[in-house]
Amino acid sequence: MNLTLKIWRQQDANTKGKMVDYPISGVDEDMSFLEMLDVLNEDLISKGEEPVEFDHDCREGICGACSLQINGEPHGPDRGVTTCQLHMRMFNDGDTITIEPFRAKAFPVIKDLIVDRSSFDRIQQAGGFISVNTSGNTIDANAIPVNKHDADDSFAAATCIGCGACVAACKNASAMLFTSAKVSQFALLPQGRVEATDRVLNMVRQMDEEGFGNCSNTGACEIECPKGISLENIARMNREYIAASVKK
């Protein structure tokens, strides 16, 4: 396939960026999107040009490192996949592909297509954990009976890889799906109930401080989420938040 890539290039966080066109040829439909970018970078390096910076790590869809807004959608046009799992067979010969960084005030661009997603880390640190005694007499988690339905829902919420596609897809750059998944995975389990009140208040406070937008319930986040995190988590977090606010 021969393609034209329109890629956001930005030297650093303080420099203004712009879209730059790169023609690329010989792209195999079995390549992953990141492999296609590797080919582009090899070509740029061989020509003495600076390669395009982009995030990647596991390249098997579980680490949440890869990002990219591809043709107006986070992780591209395929569903239930991260960019590393997106294959070039989703595109046609002659296509022009627009590649941008995830856009949100809370995700500032570091360079080219790499954004700083540490705001997610700070939300997680604000309450996305349970306090457990690890001094040698830790109680086995399996010793506490858990309703199967709740365990399944908790596990489904815990599959969020924190990639930020929800923020990127949302017209308001809202982080409600991410935060609600992290709140839900604990709120559904007896171990998580102990600190549930503080957890939801602190995580939502941190989410707001980071500058994410409000949730308009458009559902774009759920559609674009590579892990299929459900909007039900947002409803659950809203319930948790209302109850916690009344209690406090």
């Binding site: 043709n71 856009r103 949100a104 017209k171 937008g213």
Partner: peptide, 21 residues
């Protein structure tokens, strides 16, 4: 207004119709 502020730089390409009504 707050939602607009949350994305200070707009996308060159944003395909909202692909994922929401």
């Amino acid at each position: 207004i707050k939602n607009k502020q949350a994305r200070d730089i707009s996308y060159a390409s944003y395909k909202g119709s692909a994922n929401s009504s």
